[in-house]
């Protein structure tokens, strides 16, 4: 029982680290830094999944953990790295809202998701029930990042962070989705990454930048 206590503490510690990396991504200005933070988030998520798998004695979570590790820590950051090198993005990322303001909104979102998940927390008997709020907060922070950034690459990283949050929510709410669903989602994310890459190239060749504000020019004049 003592062992379980320690393991659940490790799990909540990893959840805290996931939240920290989500905030780190929110305030990070450089694209490379963002990708590294995204990789770190994937690593903490994969470790957490393995720990939850150990606590709940669900072996298919080990497979999702390895899947997360290979996909979100190695493959996706690598693809993004290659994309950025090809497209020669070196500039600092532009934000719509300034960074301290984004932080405050982020904190408000964390409080909001805590309140939102409070009833579930009372009903649930799982050992991971307290991390559900963190998972929801990660989803919201990913959304916030997609809203506050102008750059296509950072918006995609925000989307991937959002997906991380959803995966985390599945793990903490119900000890993970069925393996088939998880495999499907992983494949979807991978395909999405490739499609994003193709779109990046198209946007880049059309507008000579990845700033999505430029797309406003596409509308008809009236």
């Amino acid at each position: 029982m003592m062992d379980l206590q320690i393991v659940s503490q490790i799990s909540s510690f990893l959840a805290a680290l996931v939240l920290l990396t989500a905030f780190g991504m929110l305030v990070q200005k450089r694209v490379y830094g963002l990708i590294h933070l995204f990789a770190w988030q994937g690593l903490f998520l994969s470790l957490n999944t393995a720990v939850v798998g150990f606590v709940a004695n669900k072996h298919h979570l080990y497979i999702s953990s390895v899947l997360t590790l290979s996909l979100k820590v190695v493959l996706l950051p690598y693809i993004l790295h290659v994309l950025i090198n090809r497209l020669k993005i070196r500039k600092e990322v532009e934000t719509v809202v300034n960074i301290p303001m984004t932080m405050m909104i982020g904190i408000a979102l964390v409080i909001f998701s805590y309140h939102l998940t409070a009833p579930i927390r009372q009903l649930s008997t799982l050992i991971t029930r307290s991390t559900l709020a963190v998972a929801l907060a990660t989803v919201m922070l990913g959304l916030l990042m997609m809203i506050t950034r102008r750059h296509a690459v950072t918006q995609i990283i925000g989307f991937l962070a959002l997906e991380n949050g959803l995966f985390f929510a599945a793990t903490s709410a119900t000890y993970g989705m069925p393996l088939v669903v998880e495999l499907g989602v992983a494949l979807d994310v991978l395909i999405a990454a490739f499609i994003f890459g193709i779109f990046f190239f198209h946007i880049h060749t059309t507008f000579d930048t990845l700033d999505v504000e430029q797309m406003a020019k596409l509308k008809e004049e009236n």
Partner: peptide
Amino acid sequence: GSAFLLATLGMLAYYIL
């Protein structure tokens, strides 16, 4: 601001986790 963020996250982590 990040110091404040970390401190606030600490407080939130106390309630959440």
